[in-house]
Amino acid sequence: MTTPSQSPVPARTPAPARVPVLDVRNLRVEYGGDGRAVVGADDVSFTIGAGEVFGLAGESGCGKSTVANALMRLLKPPARITAGTVTFKGCDVLAMDPRELRAFRWREIAMVFQSAMNSLNPVLTIGEQIGDIFTTHERMRKRQARARSGELLELVGIDPARLKSYPHQLSGGMRQRVVIAMAVALKPALLIMDEPTTALDVVVQQEIMAQIGDLQRELGFSVLFITHDMSLMVELSHRMGVMYGGRLVELAPAKELFADPLHPYTQALMNAFPPLTGPRVHLTGLADLPRTGTSCGFHAHCPDDRSDCSMNIPDLREVAAGRFVARTSGGAR
């Protein structure tokens, strides 16, 4: 096991206010095999500024997690990044060699995985697992690593005495906090959270999200937040994108998008959640149609006039300052 002697990533200096931390351009990911290719993400472009919380919403299979894994270069064959660029603080992530990647991951971009609470090793104590980060990445001594691990646990509101516990001795919410603590251990500039609270119940979810908000304000990292829960996302993120069939169909400040969704798919996704207030209305939810080569899969439920529709998802167009929507010019409202 070799650790790089020097970090290839430039030392962390505060980025100029205008330069985004992460800049993704025209990213395309394909899953090959069996002589056919499935497009996991297609022409995805977005930026995340310093200290910004950017949300990525969409149903299963829309490509949210594919994008997240592509940013970390975690995709394994048959998945391939076939086009686009990922620039992180001026560095081309897609051009990094394994050694550079090893130093880049976790120190610069850390990730809280889906069902993260099951990602802890059941036969190691919490302390050993957190300590690993420091001994590997920072070459700390065991004793020092243990002290830092204790501080980390305190940061997420867990008694440091729990360092001696095994994962099964903690509740789901506590395990999730441990995983979040591990993700922020090296003070990364960007934290990717892939459905961080899906397996938790509402009360714990609310507490974890509040905690992430506090940490984010305290440590100042940017967040790429992936979920299918639109309400949660609107509450937490500054800007958000909605993905469908591997493409971004709408990109806007979260509050504006919630108040006035422009793309029919965004409207449908918001309609998939019953409201907590107001009269009981009948909801229809979303269609169970796949996107194919000739159809966006959504046309059957599209409320718009489809006469000019090519049955494919058009490119994003800016319709107002900071608001992008995938629409053909005819489909104005």
Binding site: E59, S60, D229, L269, A272, P274, L283, G285, L286, D288
Partner: peptide
Amino acid sequence: DVSVRIGILN
């Protein structure tokens, strides 16, 4: 998934 939950509830 979110897209099919409403269907089951209905």
